Amino acid sequence: MKNTVVTFKKAKEMNEKLTMLTAYDYSTAQLIDNAGINGILVGDSLGMVCLGYEDTLSVTMEDMIHHTKAVSRGVKNTLVVADMPFMSYHTSVYDAVVNAGRLIKEGRAHAIKLEGGVEVYDKIDAVVKASIPVMGHIGLTPQSVNAFGGFKVQGKDEQAAKKLIEDAIAVEKAGAFAVVLEGVPSKLVALITEKLSIPTIGIGAGVDCDGQILVYQDMLGMFSDFTPKFVKKYETLGEKMKIAFETYIEEVKNGVFPAEEHGFKIDEEVIEKLY
């Protein structure tokens, strides 16, 4: 079944959990789509897991459009959400609408995601009024890593918790169809999820969200720079890939690969005529 923003709304109403993963290329998107997931996020996390940056801040609009186009070509039934990169919407409402439009028109995304709560109300409102679905993102917002002083859990004291509740309500009122909660204490997440009529998607936010999202390289053990506490590794593909690469190297060096079955034949009489 084709997943849309309406699918997300109905899942919340029916108390059905939503599932999302990141993807950044055609072949991975195709595999995830075939598995039957609800949504794929083309995250600006590609800056770290694909491009080797230490954070997401260096990711450009061109990066996001390039990867979103690849992902969108690989899916048939999955909702594709593309991240708005750092400084693509912070400067003005006009920039927010124009750049969101580029991700839809050029990247072929179905929706966009941007970070922030009360302070980006006007941007979410304007993008939604331009007929572009918006997913919000509050809590540990990676584009604010310098302001936060690192990747830290958010909303742990009373003032910060109240701010997160206000942010969540603002994101909903601005017209977002869903909101990501990242790095937020579980009991606070349960409270926010209960208050909102739009689905909450958690990452490092406990079980009480309406859905979950993970970076696929994290959950498959393919990214070894660091592993967040909230990640469950469903496979150790990174180690398996390394073993496969080593085996390939060894077989090539020893003349084991390619074997006869990996080659193509030609009639012997053709070869004889060449001498």
Rank of each mutant, 00 (worst) to 15 (best):
T7Q: 02
F8N: 01
M14K: 14
N15W: 02
A23P: 01
L31W: 01
G39D: 00
G43V: 06
D44F: 02
L46A: 10
G47M: 02
L51Y: 14
E54Y: 02
S58C: 03
V59Q: 01
T60A: 05
T68Q: 09
T68S: 10
K69V: 00
V71E: 11
R73G: 00
R73P: 00
V75W: 06
L79Y: 07
D95W: 02
A96V: 00
N99D: 02
G101H: 12
R102V: 07
G107V: 09
G107C: 04
A111T: 12
I112N: 05
G116N: 01
V120D: 01
V134T: 03
I138F: 12
P142T: 10
D157H: 14
A161K: 14
L164P: 07
L164S: 09
I165W: 04
D167Q: 08
A170P: 05
A170L: 08
V171S: 10
E172Q: 15
A174V: 14
A178L: 09
K187P: 02
L188V: 14
I192M: 12
T193I: 07
I198D: 07
T200E: 09
A205V: 13
G206I: 05
V207H: 08
G211V: 10
Q212E: 13
I213K: 13
L214P: 08
Y216P: 02
D218L: 07
M222R: 12
F230L: 09
L237M: 15
V252E: 03
V256H: 13
K265W: 11
K265M: 09
V270W: 09
K273R: 12
Y275G: 09
